[in-house]
Every structure is written in C-alpha cells, then in structure tokens.
Design a protein around this nucleic acid. Structure first.
Length: 472
RNA sequence: GGAGGCGUGGUGUAGUGGCCUAACAUGCAGCCCUGUCAAGGCUGAGAUCGCGGGUUCGAAUCCCGUCGCUUCCGCCA
C-alpha cells in the first residue's frame, strides 16, 4: 500500500532512518524516506513500520478505520506513504479514542512489533495517543471502502473530504506522475519549460469560447491555449513546453469536457513536416507511460489499468479514416469535414482490432477546419499538415506543423478575416525569423481518465470546473 | 444551444396506483466480543419519497410546471 513516490524510495532506502530512538544505527542521519530531520520528531511512516520492528516510534496520520473487538481495538492509520495497523488493548488508551470519528488525525506512540497477521507485516502497539485533530461529526459518506459509493456530484461537492478516498488519491497521483514524466522526457530532449500568460488581451484562436475578465477597466480573457506564446518562444529557445491550465468557456456537459483543464503543450523548430511532430509525440508520450508503470504500480493496480506500450502507432489519413468507418461500420461520413465522437470510438476499436494498438494517429484534416496558423500540405493545400492522436477512441492530442512563413501567414489571416492588429506581437516572431516548426497539446485529465478507465474526466481533476460547479 | 434519463433516511439502492404505518445495504448511536483486516452478533435513531400544482375514492408511483443532477449531440483536449 505504497504511494508512487514512497514505493520507489522506500524499496531501496528504507532501513536508513534517524527517526527511531536509541539503538538505531542510523541515528543522526536524515531519514531518506520520510525526510524528517533529526531534530524534528521521531515520526515513522506507515511504509517504514516493519523496518523499525522492536523500536518505539511515533506513527501519525488520519484514522482510516477503527475495528473494536471488545478488549482490543485495531486502528488503520493513513499517511502519505499508505496504511498501517495500530493496536490498542489498554482501556485508558482506548477511552481517549471514544467519540472520535474516522479521519481524526492522531499521533500514536508505541512499540513496533513484527506481526504476520497484520497487513504490512508489522503493527504498532499503542501506548500513547495524541489527538491532533478530533473529528466528532459523522462523515457525509464512506471513504474508507474499496469503492466510493457516493455519486460524482455528491462527492465533488465535498471534494476536500471525498478526494481522500484511495481511488481518488491514486488518480491524482497518476496525473502528477504523467506530468512529471512528460517534463522529464522533454528536458532530456533539450526542451525548455515555459510559463506563458493566462491573462490575454485577445481571443486568440477563435473556435472555442473564452472567459472575459476585467483587467483594470480593459477587457481581457483567460487563455484558452498557450498556442501563440509557445510558438513565439520557439523563436527564443527552439524547443519549448508548458504544463499549465487552459480555460474553455464552451457550455458543454459531457463526461470528457472540463472548462478548466491542464494542457501538456510542446512546440519545437527545425522539423520537416508534421510527421516529425507525430514522432516526437510518440517518443515523449511513450516514455512518459513507460515510467509510469514502474513508479505507480500500486495505483495502477487499483484500477486494474493496463498501461499501453506506445510503439509504431498506426497512422491513417483523414479520408482513409472515413473509408474505414464506411467499410467496417457502414456509416458514410465521407464529405464531412471532421470526425464525430462516435467515429473516433469506432476508429479506436478498429485500431485495437486491426493493429493491436491503443493509439491511432489520424492525419491530414481539412485545412478549413483547422486554425489559421496550421500549415497546409504543400501538394494539396486543402489538406493540412495536422493530426489528432486517438487514445482508446478518444481525442487525446491535437498537433501539427505551423505556418512559419511570414508572408503566407499574413495572407492566410487576410483570407480568413483574422484582424492583424491584435496579433502584431505574434507576427513579430515570424517577421524576424522562424524555422519550420510544429507542436502538439495533450489533455492531461483525458489522459488519466482514458488510462484508468474513469467514467468521467472530472474524476481526474481535484476540483473540476464545469457548467455549474464553481466551488469547492 | 439541442435531446434523453434520474431525483426515495447521511450515502447507495428497491418499491412504478391501494399489500407503504415506505424496504434493503452501509454509515451513525448503544450493548456483547482480545486478532480484526468490507470484522461479526443484538438493539435503536434516522426519509412528510426534490419542490409546486393537477388527475383519482386513493399518488413515492400517473399528468403539467419548476429546480437539481446526469448522459449524449454540437464544439473541443
């Protein structure tokens, strides 16, 4: 029952700890697992309990479960590293616990005993209890069960409490780990992390609606994408990425949309065409997923999640995709400028069946359906050098090559009726030298949701913003 | 913006014209229990069935309105 971080850290270093009392060989050193400095406390984490057998320690955490059997009471304590069992058989200690509900925060002192009957192989025989936070109100729903029974709406309204459930914690850790792995893979490839403004003066891309805000009396918007800024920064760093929030004001109410989500964005120069961007997406996301398997084994197991191997992802052209839908599923969407969600689900199913792949690249969407900065195919301008990456039938990534030629960019903007004035700052990037470039964006919460098989993206975000939910 | 589904103790569900004085599980409270690990046993409290109107001898149940939630579509990651 280890979290991602503690699992790997604990496996190789768990015996080194100054936290224990006299007799410990590692005294005066900093605990490598808990990070506790020698002067602070003698706290031991749940995952470290067995390594401290025979010693007196402090175990602190939330009271996850209490099982009273008359003369003996079992306490399951939760801390950041997992769960540990503590046993109370002294009436004076037991009386201190009366009236306390689950989630009370306790600091337990006692001896660690190796005990095969306890989960984790050891338990704490409690001699002293310090109540750090007494909870006397019965919780709104049960969070100490393997499955959370409360409905999405109910637990999200009490998210500060509901997120403590094992599956919710695990889903958030998976998201954190995906972001971490993404950063690591990109830094290794020479990308610089950037932080672009989330308050912007103009509604950049069009398409998606934006949230207007008041900016010292001027109208401004919450950024719907770092797109334009990351492109400008390609002119600065050549390779850039950002992990940050984006805001979409579309009034949609579906299981796959959020009005605020985390976008994993990259953009880089000196490419030949969008195929280079696809190759980068495959390499970076593949590496991110591979790291996840070893770092989050326990969390993944909670969901019985199968982590896909991302290698040689099949690529189909947009029109080819429509032909496949017609041939395999009998619906003729050829003429339509985009793929509907049902089409993407079919394509995901087909990719699994025909290629054994959880992923599918669809390239060459109609230029007219893509934003103005999209690079058209030089042979067929009505087809763009763009792509989507479907993950188990859901649009996870959008990317492509961008128009880097200043004069062409101006011409496209003119033809599409995009006003030049608000984009002068953007255009400077191209006026003063921009290599052929491209990039992509990944929806983090969608990634987590698809990976874990969550029914709703909202479950992949701590405090989701949707059509009606603005708090907590 | 459009379409469908669902609102019943704290939570999750059953009940879809009279058998409902509303059931079950879990949680909560009390009692019993020294090896539990979704602990077990006994007892108890807890819901005017989202709200308003209507049909009917009779409504949790049917109809209308309204509010809330949810899913799908449009759009997107």
């Amino acid at each position: 029952m280890l979290s991602c971080c503690a699992a790997t850290a604990g496996a190789s270093r768990r015996t080194r700890c100054i936290a224990c009392r006299a007799g410990c060989a590692w005294r005066r050193r900093r605990c490598q697992v808990s990070g506790a400095p020698s002067s602070q406390s003698s706290r031991v984490l749940s995952a470290e309990l067995l390594a401290h057998a025979g010693r007196q320690v402090q175990l602190s955490g939330w009271l996850q479960t209490r099982r009273e059997l008359g003369g003996v009471t079992f306490l399951i304590v939760r801390d950041r590293a997992g769960l540990a069992q503590a046993v109370v058989d002294r009436p004076d200690v037991a009386s201190q616990l009366s009236g306390l509900q689950v989630e009370s925060v306790l600091q337990l002192t006692g001896n660690v005993v190796a005990e095969p009957r306890a989960r984790g192989g050891a338990e704490l025989r409690v001699e002293h209890v310090e109540v750090l936070s007494a909870v006397t109100e019965a919780p709104p729903f049960e969070i100490n069960r393997p499955k959370l029974t409360a409905s999405l709406d109910v637990w999200l309204d009490r998210a500060a409490f509901g997120l403590r459930h094992a599956e919710k914690r695990a889903a958030l850790r998976i998201g954190a780990e995906l972001a971490r792995g993404f950063r690591k893979a990109l830094v290794a490839r020479g990308f610089v992390e950037i932080f672009t403004p989330k308050i912007v003066g103009s509604a950049t891309e069009g398409g998606a609606n934006v949230f207007p805000i008041d900016y010292f009396g001027r109208s401004a918007y919450l950024a719907q994408s770092p797109q334009l800024y990351k492109q400008m920064l390609v002119g600065v760093h050549e390779r850039v990425f950002e992990v940050g929030p984006v805001f979409r004001a579309e009034p949609h109410a579906t299981a796959r949309h959020l009005n605020e989500y985390t976008s994993l964005d990259i953009e880089f120069g000196f490419i030949h065409d969008h195929r280079d961007v696809m190759a980068m997406a495959e390499a970076v996301l593949g590496e991110t997923l591979a790291g996840l398997t070893e770092r989050c084994a326990d969390d993944l197991q909670l969901f019985a999640a199968r982590v896909p191997v991302m290698r040689a992802v099949p690529i189909v052209g947009f029109h080819e995709a429509q032909e496949i839908i017609l041939r395999e599923y009998g619906e003729d969407c050829r003429g339509e400028p985009d793929l509907a969600p049902q089409h993407e689900r079919w394509l995901g199913e087909w990719a699994q069946r025909a290629h054994g792949s959880d992923f599918l690249f669809v390239e060459g969407y109609p230029t007219a359906k893509r934003p103005f900065y999209t690079m058209p195919n030089p042979e067929q301008p009505e087809v763009s050098n763009s792509f989507d990456l479907l993950f188990r039938g859901l649009e996870l990534v959008t990317g492509g090559q961008r128009e880097h030629r200043y004069e062409r960019l101006l011409a496209v903007m003119e033809a599409r009726g995009v006003p030049r004035e608000p984009f002068e700052g953007y255009l400077d990037a191209f006026r003063f030298g921009m290599p052929p470039e491209g990039g992509f964006a990944v929806g983090l919460e969608r990634f987590v949701a698809q990976l874990l098989g969550l029914g709703n993206v909202r479950e992949a975000r701590a405090f989701p913003r949707d059509l009606t939910r603005l708090a907590p």
